[in-house]
Amino acid sequence: MKKHIIDFEIVENRPIHSLYSLLVMRPVNTTLPSVILPGQFVEVAVENSPGTFLRRPISVNNVDRENNTLWLLIRRAGKGTAAMMEKRPGEKLNLVMPLGNGFTMPESTQSALLVGGGVGVAPMLYFGHEMKRRGLTPEFLLGARSKADLLQLDEFEKIGPVHISTDDGSAGEPGIVTTNSVLSSHWDRIYCCGPLPMMKAVAREARRIGAECEVSLENMMACGLGACLCCVEPTVKGNVCVCTEGPVFNINQLTWQD
């Protein structure tokens, strides 16, 4: 897939939590690439930020073709992301995109559960929108520490049914997502992104119920092009770069054990 290097102008910087902001951006003097797959990511250059030399990999949160805008959900994790969260409307960011592969779209007869924990909810929003655009009805399982930590809940509810797990029981079912009762239902396909222990637990549950399962790995991806080898992941076919062979993998490709 062709890669693009594009300058984007910030249209809106919307704080949605003390640790998260939503950047809504529009490409400068052009349109968004014609193909952006749910599950793909971008590499963002953070200029004028001392000590931030490498681009930052960020999942595509949403693509709004009508308004020619790209959404990125940013979590404050270090100097680079902190600098991005301080950007104001009118300021610019340079992106390399789209990178990696995407989720496999389910067939019209297949049921699908999209599971996200923390910032791992980001790619599930765009995936859900694309499924709905194709006449499918995805369901979501979102996990967070508390009700206050749930991200973009109103946006997910516009797409399909939302199931919730919170560690403190302040919303939805108490506990982590892998104990949510919805996982005991029949699902043809399960998709997941979030902390590694969560994804491994979801993968075990998917195997138990016989569902196909894809996960989006969050290995450190410094270049996004397979050159730096920071993101290597062991698979059943040997070591691969997550940024080029992933970030989305069928769990049968991974060396995770039951």
Rank of each mutant, 00 (worst) to 15 (best):
V42W: 02
R145F: 06
N62Q: 11
G172P: 04
G128W: 08
L142F: 01
E130L: 14
G78S: 11
F8E: 00
L70T: 01
A122G: 07
D64G: 01
E9L: 03
V177P: 03
G118L: 10
K79H: 13
K200Y: 03
L125W: 03
A144N: 02
E66V: 12
L32M: 07
D154I: 09
L150R: 00
V240K: 13
V236P: 01
K87Q: 13
A171D: 02
P98G: 05
E43W: 07
C223L: 06
C223R: 11
W71N: 07
T31A: 13
T179S: 14
L254M: 09
E86M: 15
V115R: 00
C231F: 07
E91A: 10
L73Y: 06
E66F: 04
F249Q: 05
V35R: 14
A83P: 12
V35L: 13
N68C: 06
L254E: 06
H163Q: 05
E139L: 02
D168I: 13
L72S: 02
G116N: 04
R56F: 06
D64M: 07
L142Y: 00
G128I: 09
M199N: 08
N180A: 10
G238Q: 08
T69N: 05
G224Y: 07
S34V: 14
N101T: 12
M124K: 08
W71H: 12
Y20K: 05
V177W: 00
T244I: 15
L73D: 01
E9F: 00
K92H: 13
H4F: 15
G226R: 04
M221N: 10
L229S: 13
N239K: 14
E86L: 15
L141A: 01
G169S: 12
W187Q: 07
V182Q: 05
E139C: 10
I176K: 06
A77Y: 08
S21W: 13
G143H: 03
T31D: 14
R133S: 15
L32S: 05
E43A: 12
P89G: 08
C241V: 04
T81E: 09
I36Y: 02
H4C: 10
L22A: 09
P33S: 12
T109Y: 08
K3D: 03
P123H: 01
M199Q: 08
F140E: 00
G80P: 10
T109D: 15
V121C: 05
N250E: 11
I74L: 11
L70A: 03
V63N: 05
G102S: 05
L142Q: 01
M221T: 03
Q110T: 04
I190L: 15
I176C: 13
L95N: 01
N48A: 14
L151V: 01
P123C: 01
Q257A: 14
L225R: 10
N252K: 13
V248K: 08
R189S: 07
T255A: 07
S185Q: 14
C228K: 10
D149I: 03
